[in-house]
Every structure is written in C-alpha cells, then in structure tokens.
Design a protein around this nucleic acid. Structure first.
Lengths: 187, 187
DNA sequence: GTCTATAGAACGATAGAC
DNA sequence: GTCTATCGTTCTATAGAC
C-alpha cells in the first residue's frame, strides 16, 4: 500500500535523514519488496517529494490573516506547543533542514520556499501592526522576524535532544519580551 | 598527506553531510587513492572523529571567565560576526547538527556534549550576574540560555540560505533586548 | 606513505511475469 | 499492485607490493 510506504519513509527519514535512508529499508519497513515500492515511487527523489508534500500538509503554519496584534507570533507559540506531541514531524523537519542547506540537495528548493513563506508571514504581520499603531514604528521588522524563526528552529533541536525542554514556554517568554520591547500601549 | 585529506573531508561533509560523503570522494578530492586515505583514517568513522576534533579546535566558544556582565552573551555576538567570514565552518556545523540529532549517529555524543557545554556556560554567566546584582533575580535563566543558543543556531541556517543576513546584528539586537528586560540598573 | 587489487555487500533502477 | 531477477554502479574495508 502506498500509504504504508509513505509512513515508513517518513519514519526512517526522520530518524536517519534522506541520504542515509535506502529504498530497501523503506520497502522492508513497509512490508513490501523494493520493486513493489518502486511501483508507487519510481525513484528515491519521487519518494522524497511525497514525504515533503505530506509534511507540508501536516504543518499548520499557513499564511493566516488576523487583525489581532502579534497573532502570527502567538500562533507560532501554539504550533510549538502542538509540536511537543509530534516528535516524528519535528525530527523530519530538522533532518531535512540540515541536509537541504546544500544548494544541490533535492529538497533545497522546498527549504528556500519554506523560509520565504514563514518570514514573509511574520514581516507582513509586523508591518500591518505598525500601520495599526500596535507595534512601534522604529521596530526592526527584519531582525524580529528572523529572530522568531531562529528561536522556533533552534528550540526544536534542543527539544529533540531533551524532551523535557518546554519549547512553547521558552518561545512564549521571548514573544512576551518582544511585545514589551516593541509593542505600543495600544495593545 | 593527512592534512589535505582532512581538509577535503571537512569541505565535502560541510557541503553534503556525513552520510552522503564517501571515502572515495574524499580520497579523490585529496588527490590520493581510497587506500591511501585508509592508511591515515582506517574507517569512515575515524575520519569523522578527526573532522569533529578539528572543528572543536577552530571553534573559539570556550568556557571563559569574565566579570563583565553578559560577557558570554556579548562573546556569542562576536563569534557570530566572525562566523560570517567562515562559511565552511558554519556549514559543517549545521549539517552535523541535522544528522546527529539521531541517537544512533556517530556524532550524537559530540552533539550532546556541545550543547551541554554552551548551555552551561550561559547559565553560569547568568547566575553569576544574578549574584553580582547585574541580572534580575527573577530572570528565567534556563529560558534565556536556551533562547540564546536557539538564536545562534537558527541564524546560521538563515545565513547559509542568504549570506546577506547580518547574523551578528540580529543577535546583538536580541542581546540588547535581553539586557533591557532582565538587566538591572547596576549595569 | 601510497599504491594496485579485490573482496563482499548495498545501492538505485529497470524489465517482465503473474 | 506486487513479485523475481538482474543490471551496472558504488560503497567500506582489507591484503599485500613498492
């Protein structure tokens, strides 16, 4: 079954990375032969594409429009909390990021798009808040957005090493500090 | 020459990761045969060990003792600035982190030790500053230390994707915010 | 210290039967 | 949709000559 093969691939790539995972391993974990796997995914690259599509579908950080100040930032805290119950998804994300920084990696384009999307969402939120007067005019939009993404990414690494780390709490602390520093009294 | 082989290995692992790099590739890049390489590094694992040792030697974030408030944090900003001229070192670090989150990875123990060292240094600094009265007693030491490490790591990913990102400036901005939020007037 | 030669296994991918 | 069979390649590692 295609579904079982996809799940097996996600599990293995999350644990070992894409380069270290072989088609034979995926096939064995799915309970079929390598050729049976090849029927659904004619190449290793095609399998990776399906894995990334599945990941994006499960990742809820979509561009959402809200008029609440800092709502995109609060939403990331919420995502962090939910991720603390989804180790497989977090591990898959981090192994992909680590491999796909290389420009030649088959997932590099996916990674570039992912960062562009998240950064754009945060930048848009900050600029909209500035126009509404809930974020100070002199707030460094670019630095704040990039810091938020860095915190999100870095905390996932530390949480994978030690699940007692409360990603959401640490992130919420930083978001609160951002609000204190760059928010206006209008909030 | 052992030196040339080590340099080739660092270059290739930085670009492709450990799993995707073969001994034959390293040997070719070093201008020797795979067997010539095997003389210096009898196994791929031994080569990885040498690469990690070399990385640690080049990484200057040693436990340093200073009585300046926040000096460990200011030092990380300095390291970030210096890293902006060392793409190979940054790329090697990120690919290793991505792979070594897996507990079975040969570099996992190295990664665990690395994070323990950096986090301990930052925690010690914050606690010492609290005792000296330059950091507020109610400052969340653990969250601040983990946030700092996350910022450092995450910014390196973003910088690898787009070298126009000023890691040091973004990090300095966050450190300044931390000082405003948790520092006392004694600073 | 570097080489040739080679072992033995795993790799991705394809062809064709059922 | 899954299989057997197999191609050609690449992999890590070892043995032994120079």
């Amino acid at each position: 079954m295609r579904e079982a093969a996809l799940r097996a691939a996600i599990e293995l790539i999350a644990q070992q990375g894409y380069a270290a995972t072989s088609m034979a391993q995926v096939a064995a974990a799915a309970g079929i032969s390598p050729s049976g796997l090849a029927h659904h995914f004619p190449s290793k690259n095609a399998l990776l594409g399906a894995v990334l599509d599945h990941r994006d579908a499960e990742d809820t950080f979509v561009r959402e429009r809200s008029h609440e100040p800092w709502s995109a930032f609060d939403h990331m805290v919420h995502v962090a909390r939910r991720n603390m119950g989804r180790r497989r998804l977090v591990a898959l994300y981090m192994t992909m990021i680590g491999e796909a920084v290389a420009p030649e990696h088959p997932a590099h384009a996916w990674m570039v798009r992912h960062y562009a999307d998240v950064l754009d969402t945060l930048r848009d939120q900050l600029r909209a808040d500035q126009q509404r007067g809930t974020v100070r005019e002199d707030a460094p939009v670019e630095a704040i957005a990039r810091s938020m993404v860095s915190l999100m990414d870095g905390l996932q690494v530390q949480w994978l090493l030690d699940e007692s780390v409360d990603m959401a709490a640490v992130l919420a602390e930083s978001v609160a500090a951002m609000k204190r520093t760059w928010g206006t009294e209008l909030v």
